[in-house]
Amino acid sequence: MSSPEAALWWARSRAEGPLRVPSVTRTPAGMLRLVERDGEHCWLLTRPPDDVTPAMLRELRMQVLPVEFPNETRRVLAAALRCCWTDIQASPWPGQPATMREVLDVVDQLTPGRGEEVLHRFGMGAFRRLNASRWLDIDDDVQRVCLGPRVATWPDQDLPALRELCRELPPPRPDREPDR
């Protein structure tokens, strides 16, 4: 059940976040393995006991580390989920790739009238933070947004609420400014 390697993997995941390793790596005890689309790499995530999430700390009336610009960040995450999670009966990960424009367009519809530049600046900040914490997987060069491995840590019982959230969000509008 437990082994020194497992302890090391877990600790490493704690220190570095979700780990991206070659697919040949054996899955350490108690970890979740998510194989990437190309099949060559997979992500390793820790599976907490009884799938308990930090949401539980609210019940304990304890604090988690605060997220910076929480609303902005979460709006972008929700928008990305809207764009990438195309088959909402399946699990969110891996989902389909979307473009940054599409995601930002959904955000724009959520917070209309903010102006191109403000939207872009806030949006990019949120992308960077979500990419760093592996909630999203951003490829700046091709402006591509994918869901990150951490979305697989949402427990199953949260999925109905996530689906409802997705259904409520507007879809990205067709490309209005092809030159952007």
Binding site: R14, G17, A55
Partner: peptide, 16 residues
């Protein structure tokens, strides 16, 4: 520890 911010579904809904 690496930063591992948690985005709860309730938080997402709230933000939206």
């Amino acid at each position: 520890d690496a930063p591992s911010p948690w985005h709860d579904v309730a938080d997402l809904a709230e933000a939206v």
